[in-house]
Amino acid sequence: LPHVPGPCDHEDLLDGVLFGAKYLGSTQLLSERNPPPSTRMAQAQEAVDRVKAPDGETQPMTPVDLFVSTKRIKVLMANAQEALMDHALQTISYIADIGPVLVLMARRRLARSTRPQERERRLYKMLCHVFHAEDAQLIAQAIGQAFAVAYSQFLRENGIDPSQVGSRPRATSPGHLHNGDLDHFSNSENCREVHIEKRRGEGLGVALVESGWGSLLPTAVIANLLHGGPAERCGELSIGDRVTAINGASLVGLPLAACQAAIREVKSHTAVTLSIVHCPPVTTAIIRRLHSREQLGFCVEDGVICSLLRGGIAERGGVRVGHRIIEINGQSVVATPHARIVELLTEAHDEVHIRTMPAATYRLLTGQEQPVYL
């Protein structure tokens, strides 16, 4: 393990360290996914304001032990050692210390909102636990150290050298950001409304796949069109098109199953309007890698991108999870063994051009999978 500065021994953090504190209470807040530091500060202050008793009133407090390890954070009753709260470390979004007060922010599942504008903003429920401890700062430092140790373990497990992360400048100049998608999606000429006439009870005749995590426009993608079906007959749809709305209801950010359900729901209609962004089935990512020692920032399994380092050169270049690599620097790799693809990628430097398509689309186009038409 690399040395991570902090008040604890790494070995101790793996097993777990206990700190005495007084539990003041908990509250819940709604939060964006990765709020800026100023928002986090306001959230921590808000949590303290809600939990703290007003001046002049007695503050209810429960003596507890905070158990901190690289896997979990638990709040234990001081005497009984019974767990009051138990959170996996990766669900702790952040911690705040304000003088003798410590605030722990645990992310809960995505708040399912029925209001479309909130769904677009992807609000998360945050559970905020507030504690009082004379050494709140020390506890915060120990939790910060546990974050760093767990993070470096995670990077190693994913084949990324932790010394390469964070040591180089985080965000390079916008000039180094390639994202063909950004130009494409912002060009209104690529967006259109497609009207499809059909018989009542007839399906649209489209197969959908996910655009993939990391996509700038997370929504359903047309993977196939049923021959002779209403979608194909209208002549305005092609494989790769993003479906952003159906009869005016947005599909952006919804899980694939929800997009499919929305399309099934219009089976009884005789006319349907799809809002689409016309996209080619294959996308190009351009990774600027100064030398072949620099981490590419993604993992490949059998030609499919299975994970992506946030902020890495691959993500900035437009690479996304769930896509199959079709070409590397103009060379087709569809029939290339995994080991050779890895070799090609590790050798590549300067400007690496990678052409990809959603793996599910690829499987449908090559007949490895049968399309399910909606």
Binding site: A88, Q90, A96, A106, R107, R109, L110, A150
Partner: peptide
Amino acid sequence: SALTITVNPMEKHEAPGRGEE
């Protein structure tokens, strides 16, 4: 007193929608 925020670096790797109930 000063307010210090320590963000979990894992946060940026978490797939959307993850968390604990």
